[in-house]
Structures are given as structure tokens and as C-alpha cells.
Nucleic acid binder design. Structure first.
Length: 505
RNA sequence: GGCGGCGUAGCUCAGCCUGGUUAGAGCGCUCGGCUCAUAAUCGAGAGGUCGGUGGUUCAAGUCCACCCGCCGCUACCA
């Protein structure tokens, strides 16, 4: 399973919106690995184009210096969020340059590229094109209130129009190709209104990848950026790797769906490559709540949240409180509520109370069940259902799947109440029953650690350590390791609470 | 304007495609229990004219029409 995020444009510092996409991809990638599937997770940075060149000039840096700096920031943020990407592609890398040129050449050789004048209304101040209807009265630039110029240069065009029918046919034949269905409708509507050919080169720009057959032009940044998904896995220089990884599953924000669901597939058709398995577009992260409404999404850096919620708290919130397909609101209050209710109370406290009882009543060591005693089926069933719920990750149903996993913790808490170990512990004749109860609870924690590992790798690992289990919670396949059985006789070591409660100010 | 979507408990949402027991979940709230635990946990409960009107049907949150409110897409700003 080859999973990609968009490559992020380096004029933007990493913010919570980038983190949302990347955390989703990470949870998905970790899920597939946990399921035992070979998985390759790619993210990276998009580093060419006019805006970068301009930003570098403003900062008094060379473009390369600028992109080196910003791309490193992304690398560091993903490390701090425990993103498990297998590769990080930068479009200024040689492998991308080689691959992109090969890709362009393939389009050219297929007869899908031609030279034609690119005309438009151009504002010199903006250094940008406008459409007639976007201008103010009298043909003035809406930003600078200056007359725009009619501008024309020869560019290479990709015959996008040629692929309308085939794109529609593919989308019709593959209902899962564009997800969710409302976005699929938008894409179909867009194609139906007719596709124009796409300008894929720029003559007045140096910071980019030259057109292979005409080095006086560089590739239009969007077109070049899309190719990263192919060049990162060997296109044009390592066919064996490419064959092994392709095709990808693309995770994108709804704002860039069209590039991934129309332009990119058409390019792939022209290059003779298999289309992506799926292009999944998630909704926006809207900023609500008092503390954050004063600032914009762009200014919320993931670091601002890690101090209070921790990596796992942030990751859990992004996956549990938001629904992939629709927009969701992101608020400090919402995060605190969710953290306290699910992580501190339901889960963290469960871990703490169980380990505490094991230490108090059994000095940290509970004998393994012999198998002769009846296992309490309710707890075992709850674990089985939680394992089934996790499969929802494959359909991007993270919030529902997590709700399902949390039912196991609810069942374990209820089981504690029902069995009341603190009472049994006072009765020497019920020693065996106490062992059985505690063993079942430890086993529930062991299963839980496995199931949360795609979302909360840190907490999963800590819990695993506290349980003194060998190996790691994320060893595949979970469909076998997470089967509820007997917890081995180990001496647990209760650590600090996994999720200390956050007190409201 | 065209195309598409949404409006269900205080909050966030599921259910609607394939009409049919007392409309569900999580959080919040109220009451009760418990005391191993991070004032955590367990149980019970309150709370909804399912945006409005009309229609189809033995039966509509669920299908149809219209209306009101909100939102998305309608190409080259990563």
C-alpha cells in the first residue's frame, strides 16, 4: 500500500492544516503496517516556482538556501509528531529532476504536448494573470487598481481535453476512485463542463525544472509537483522500485482535489501509467473556540499544542473529533474535553487503576490463566469487537473506528466495577478468582495497546513497557496479536499516568 | 446562473440510498452506587414538532414537490 500526502509548498511554514493531512496519512500507514501489509508512506516538499524564487529574493537568500531551510522545518515537525514516513521527497532533488524530465518526455513522445501562445491579462505588480471577470471596472487589477496588460508568451500545453472521456469512464467504472462521493460529483461536474488544455511551462522563470526538449522554459510548478508521487518511488531511474510501489493512494485536501483527480490522472494516462487506487479528499480544519479564533489557522503551529496535549493527544484529537469527508472545527475547548474524557478518564485512568491493583494485591505479578477457569466472555467479546472496529481505518473512518476501540476500555471499566477486585482481595479464598480477573484486565490492556498504536504510538509503547511485555505493540499482524487470550506472568511496572488530566483554566 | 451537499437531543454527529417496533451515539447535564484509580469509574435518567409546507403510502426523519437558511464546486494563487 503506497500512501501519499501532498508535498507542501515551502513558502508556508508547517501549520496545523498540514499536520492534519499528514497525521491522517500516518495513521493509515501505521494501520496497514500493523495489518501486515507492505506499506510505503511518502510526504515531502514542493520547492520550485515563482513564489519561492520571490520569497528567497525578499529574504536575501538564494532559492536553494530558502528551500533547504523550510524543508528542514517540515522534516523536524514530522519527527516531533511521530510521523512514520518511509521517504521524504524534495522536488529540488536530483532524482525528482531526472524522473520529472522522463515523465515530461513521455508526455511529449505520446504526442500530447504542443507549443502555443499562452495569453492572458497580466498585472505586473502581482506578477500574475487574471481572468476578465475578476477585474475591477475599467480592467483594473483588483489588488493594485492598476491597468493590467495583455500578455502573451509561447508555452507548452498538455492535451488535457483529449482525456475527458477516458477520465469520466474511469470515474464511472471505479466508484471508489474519488472519495468521498460528494467530491466525486464535483469532479464529474467539472469534467462535464469541458476541459481545456493545460499550460505546463513558463518561459520567464528559472527556478524550476527545464523542459527536456527546450531548456528555455521550465515546467509549470503544479505539473512538476504532481510528478513527485512517481519520481519518489523510482520513476525514470529505478523501474523495479516503481513497479513494486505503484499505484498510490493519494490523501489531499479538498482544495487541491481537481489537480489530483483530473489533471494528474490524465497525465498518467498520457504517460501510460496505472491510475491511483484512490484520491481521497478530506475536509477543512476550521478554527473555532476563543483562544484560537483570534489567530488564523496559518499561525497555529503543531508545537503550540504539543506542550499541553502531547503528540498523542494532538493525533487522537485530529482523528477522533474530525470526520474525514467533512469540514470539522478545531478548538482548544474541544481538545481539552476530548482529551480528558477519552484519554485521561476512560483510558489513562483505566491503565492506572488496573496496574495499581496488580501492584497492591499481587506485588505486580499475576499468574497466567491456566485455561481451566472460564474466561469472562463479556470482556473477551469486547476485545474482539474492538479489533473488528479498527478495520474501519481502511475506509478512512477513523472517528468511528476509534469509538469502537474505546468500547473495549468502557467494557474493562465496567468489568472492574462488576468484579470489584478490592472486595475479592479481602477474601483469601477467592485468590484464584482475583488472579483471573486481574489477568483478564491486563490482557485487555495488552490488546488495547496494540489497537491504539496507529494513532498513539507513544502511549502504546509506554503502556507496553508498563505491562513489561516483550517486543512491541505494533508488531503485525494485529489480527493475530490482538486476539484476547491469556496475559503472561510478568512483573508489571506502573509508571506515571499516561495522560494526566488537563484542568480547565 | 449551473451542478452538488447540508439543516436530527445543550454541543458534535450517525440513521435517509434498500420507507415499518418506544429516533440512536459520544460529550455535557441530573440523580444514585462504588472507593482500586488521574474528583477518575459504574448504573439510571432528563432532553428531540428529525428546518418549513404540501404530497405519495396502510405507514415518512427515511420517497416526491416547493419554500427558508447554510455551504461546496464552477481550472492553471500549493
Amino acid at each position: 500500500m503506497y500512501i501519499t500526502t501532498p508535498i507542501y509548498y515551502v513558502t508556508d511554514a508547517p501549520h496545523i492544516g498540514h499536520a492534519y493531512t499528514t497525521v491522517i496519512g500516518d495513521a493509515l500507514a501505521r494501520f496497514y503496517r500493523l495489518a501486515g501489509q507492505e506499506t510505503w508512506y511518502l510526504t515531502g516538499t514542493d520547492e520550485h516556482g515563482l513564489k519561492v524564487a520571490r520569497a528567497a529574493a525578499e529574504a536575501g537568500l538564494s532559492p536553494q538556501e530558502l528551500v533547504d531551510d523550510i524543508s528542514q522545518r517540515y522534516v523536524r515537525v514530522w519527527e516531533s509528531l511521530r510521523i512514520s514516513n518511509d521517504d521524504f521527497i524534495r522536488t529540488t532533488e536530483e532524482r525528482h529532476r531526472i524522473g520529472a524530465k522522463a515523465f515530461l518526455q513521455a508526455l511529449y513522445d505520446n504526442g500530447d504536448v504542443y507549443l502555443a501562445p499562452y495569453e492572458g491579462l497580466y498585472c505586473v505588480s502581482c506578477e500574475d494573470y487574471y481572468k476578465e471577470e475578476d477585474l475591477l471596472e475599467g480592467g483594473l487589477c483588483p489588488i493594485h487598481h492598476r491597468p493590467v496588460e495583455h500578455f502573451s508568451e509561447d508555452n507548452y500545453f498538455f492535451r488535457l481535453s483529449k482525456y475527458s472521456e477516458r477520465l469520466l469512464a474511469h470515474i464511472e467504472a471505479n466508484p471508489e476512485f474519488v472519495y468521498p462521493s460528494t467530491r466525486r460529483n464535483e469532479v464529474i461536474g467539472f469534467i462535464n463542463q469541458g476541459l481545456d488544455d493545460l499550460s505546463i511551462s513558463r518561459a520567464q522563470l528559472e527556478w524550476g525544472i527545464p523542459i527536456p526538449w527546450d531548456e528555455s522554459q521550465v515546467t509549470y510548478v503544479w505539473v512538476e509537483a504532481l510528478m513527485n508521487y512517481a519520481t519518489a518511488v523510482g520513476y525514470g531511474y529505478d523501474q523495479a522500485q516503481f513497479d513494486r510501489r505503484w499505484p498510490p493512494t493519494h490523501l489531499v485536501g479538498k482544495d487541491i482535489l481537481r489537480f489530483h483527480a483530473v489533471i494528474w490522472p490524465a497525465m498518467l494516462m498520457a504517460a501510460g501509467l496505472e491510475l491511483p487506487r484512490r484520491v481521497a479528499a478530506h475536509g477543512w480544519l476550521l478554527v473555532g473556540g476563543e483562544k484560537m479564533s483570534k489567530t488564523s489557522l496559518n499561525q497555529i503551529a503543531p508545537d503550540d499544542l504539543l506542550g499541553t496535549f502531547g503528540v498523542d493527544g494532538l493525533r487522537y484529537h485530529l482523528l477522533r473529533d474530525l470526520s474525514f469527508a467533512s469540514d470539522g472545527s478545531f478548538s482548544w475547548e474541544g481538545m481539552v474535553e476530548r482529551y480528558n474524557a477519552d484519554l485521561a478518564n476512560d483510558f489513562g485512568n483505566l491503565v492506572n487503576r488496573i496496574l495499581n491493583m496488580v501492584e497492591q494485591y499481587r506485588d505486580g505479578t499475576v499468574p497466567a490463566r491456566t485455561g481451566a477457569e472460564p474466561v469472562d466472555v463479556g470482556l473477551k467479546n469486547a476485545a474482539g469487537e474492538a479489533v473488528e472496529a479498527l478495520a474501519g481505518f481502511a475506509d478512512l473512518g477513523f472517528n468511528d473506528a476509534l469509538l469502537g476501540v474505546w468500547r473495549l476500555f468502557g467494557a474493562a471499566n465496567a468489568y472492574v466495577e462488576e468484579t470489584a477486585p478490592w472486595k475479592i482481595a479481602k477474601d483469601p479464598e477467592q485468590g484464584q478468582r482475583l488472579d483471573e480477573v486481574l489477568n483478564g484486565l491486563l490482557e485487555a490492556l495488552r490488546v488495547g495497546a496494540i489497537l491504539i498504536s496507529p494513532v498513539m504510538p507513544e502511549a502504546a509503547a509506554k503502556l507496553w513497557d508498563q505491562l513489561a511485555l516483550p517486543g512491541a505493540p505494533d508488531e503485525p499482524p494485529y489480527t493475530e496479536t490482538a486476539v484476547f487470550g491469556t496475559f503472561p506472568e510478568l512483573t508489571v511496572n506502573r509508571g506515571a499516568p499516561l495522560f494526566p488530566r488537563i484542568e480547565a483554566e
